[in-house]
């Protein structure tokens, strides 16, 4: 456990735990509403914030938070009003955000694309004490929203129309989801990097649901996998001297593949158990709906 002796590793590990919790905690709602790539878009937009941070000599983390929150609100409004041409507008927002980041960093005194690299792909050694403070505050916000409003967010992400008729403030919650996802991107930016952050929002959720049948369990398993992958990846990255973001993401995908391989025999066992649970003496036909259900 010698990695714990280094102050930079302690900071990186605290950040990694917070990333592991927050990314799947909000990502699950994005997956549920089939907007799995939204985090990726926000990551692009956040680059402009990082660039502005260098240019204005302000904290890149806070500037990225500011810009990605504004970007995520724009994305939500485009989704709301855009309808047919929304996709084009989103593309412009994403690539404009990326181009803006590169431009601002290079305009900054002694700035170059090299400054941007640690934000794009994550880096252990550059997580400062003030970064950890910012990440902790932002992560607390994400956890409060994604757990505290889980019933409302579940309802809105499941069936927007029904949620509205139930009196749930759908529009406000959609904006809040977008903003929370944006904040999560900046929480994850230092360790995982902007380009790869979306993976940690989506893949643990996808991996968890290979085994789970309820939303609550999927949530818990996804967060557990997120923490395991981000801490495991951080430690591996320390010993092997490989980039943490890429290590974490590849680890998550490996877990996904392993669980997918496990899922098929598990589903077969469940189908057999369901068939066995039918009252004895039932005609054979009764097994058909169960088999069909397992297949669909």
């Amino acid at each position: 456990m010698e990695f714990l002796d280094y102050a930079f590793m302690q900071r990186a590990l605290v950040s990694a735990v917070l990333v592991g919790i927050t990314a799947p905690a909000i990502g699950i709602y994005l997956v549920q509403r089939r907007q799995a790539l939204m985090g990726d878009g926000i990551g692009h937009v956040a680059m402009t914030g990082v660039g502005l941070g260098f240019l204005l000599d302000a904290s890149p983390v806070w500037m990225a938070t500011l810009v990605s929150v504004v970007g995520s609100v724009l994305m939500e409004l485009i989704r709301w009003y855009g309808r047919t041409r929304g996709e084009i507008a989103l593309a412009m927002l994403f690539y404009g955000g990326m181009a803006g980041g590169v431009m601002f960093v290079n305009l900054a005194p002694d700035g170059s694309n090299a400054n941007l690299t640690s934000y794009l792909f994550g880096s252990l050694s550059t997580v400062s004490a003030s970064d950890v403070t910012a990440i902790s505050v932002l992560a607390a916000f994400v956890i409060v929203v994604s757990l505290g409003l889980r019933r409302q967010l579940f309802a809105v992400s499941q069936d927007e129309e029904f949620a509205r008729v139930t009196g749930v403030p759908v529009r406000a919650l959609n904006l809040l989801t977008a903003v929370t996802a944006a904040v999560t991107v900046t929480v994850a930016m230092r360790v995982v990097g902007l380009i790869l952050v979306s993976a940690l929002m989506v893949v643990p959720v996808a991996a968890a649901q290979q085994l789970t049948r309820s939303f609550a369990t999927t949530y818990a398993v996804a967060v557990a996998l997120g923490i395991t992958a981000s801490v495991g990846g951080t430690v591996t990255s320390f010993y092997q001297d490989i980039p943490p973001g890429a290590t974490i993401v590849l680890l998550t995908i490996a877990v996904f593949l392993a669980l997918t391989a496990l899922a098929a025999p598990l589903a077969r066992r469940r189908a057999r158990a369901a068939a066995a649970a039918l009252p004895a003496g039932d005609p054979v036909e009764c097994a058909i709906p169960a088999a069909r259900a397992a297949g669909g």
Binding site: R33, F154, A155, S157, T166, V168, Q209, S214, F215
Partner: peptide, 22 residues
């Protein structure tokens, strides 16, 4: 949706109309 959900979880959404802050 894109994530598994049980029958109870879906039906519970209806109660949001009757609960304060869920």
């Amino acid at each position: 949706g894109g994530v598994p959900a049980t029958v109870t979880e879906i039906v519970s959404s209806g109660r949001l109309a009757r609960t304060r802050f869920g």
